[in-house]
């Protein structure tokens, strides 16, 4: 379980996270939603230790992770932008990451899943954006981790890869793995996630199941419920002005 307690992050004058409190349950798929600049990436980067919070605490399996690095053995991370050393081949990159982790990954199973057989001997600079994203997914999922953190995992994927990605996520959930991901694609959230965290202006605006957010706002589907949240917010801001 991940617990985030009163987390603040300020970049010079810009306040990105303004007191985030939440918990992420084990064995569930949790989606983080929110408009651009709401703090989604900063939040997951804080969990990974890429961003140092201004104040607050982050606990993974009850221990604070701030200033530590060993806990990352238990996390698979998918970065938002898939860029790798240009002159390495895909096969060499896989070996590199395995070497770094001192683990043998199960890339053999995932290579056919993402149709990467022909790309293995190619240098990374010759791969298309979508193929690089598949390599990105492969590097993340080839290690068995209790927790996976994915930053916009579906960007650039073709429909076949997207379906296989969703199947993989559901399979991992059945194996009691915890998955946390950010996205802008609302139908994806409705389809695969158990829980939803909606960030707005650096705070948790809502957390619960998709059904809860829909019924709370008396809408037909998640997309409309979220549109209503955002328009209500604009309305409130206009009144304040």
């Amino acid at each position: 379980m991940i617990e985030i307690i009163d987390l603040f992050k300020r970049y010079q004058r810009l306040e990105v996270l303004t007191g985030v409190d939440l918990s992420i349950e084990d064995g569930k798929i949790t989606a983080i939603l929110g408009p651009n600049g709401s703090g989604k990436t900063t939040l997951i980067k804080s969990i990974l230790g890429l961003v140092k919070p201004t104040s607050g605490d982050i606990r993974y399996e009850r221990d604070s992770v701030l200033g530590k690095w060993e806990y990352r053995r238990k996390i698979g991370y998918l970065p938002q932008i898939a860029r790798f050393p240009e002159n390495l081949t895909v096969r060499e990159l896989i070996r590199f990451v395995e070497d770094l982790r001192n683990l043998q990954g199960n890339s053999e199973q995932l290579i056919p899943l993402f149709e990467l057989e022909n790309s293995l001997p190619k240098k990374l600079r010759f791969l298309s954006g979508g193929t690089r994203q598949k390599v990105n997914l492969l590097l993340t999922f080839m290690f068995d981790s209790p927790l996976y953190i994915l930053d916009e995992p579906t960007s650039g994927l073709d429909p076949v890869a997207l379906i296989r990605f969703k199947d993989l996520i559901i399979k991992l959930k059945d194996q009691q793995r915890t998955i946390l991901f950010t996205t802008h694609i609302i139908p994806l959230v409705e389809e695969i996630s158990d829980k939803l965290i909606f960030l707005l202006d650096g705070k948790v605006f809502f957390q619960g199941t998709c059904q809860e957010i829909i019924s709370d706002h008396e809408e037909l589907n998640l997309e409309k419920a979220i549109a209503r949240i955002l328009s209500n917010k604009h309305h409130a801001e206009n009144i304040e002005i």
Partner: peptide, 10 residues
């Protein structure tokens, strides 16, 4: 961007 991936490793 690759540094970010490395930073997320143990």
């Amino acid at each position: 961007e690759f540094i970010e991936l490395l930073l997320a490793q143990p």
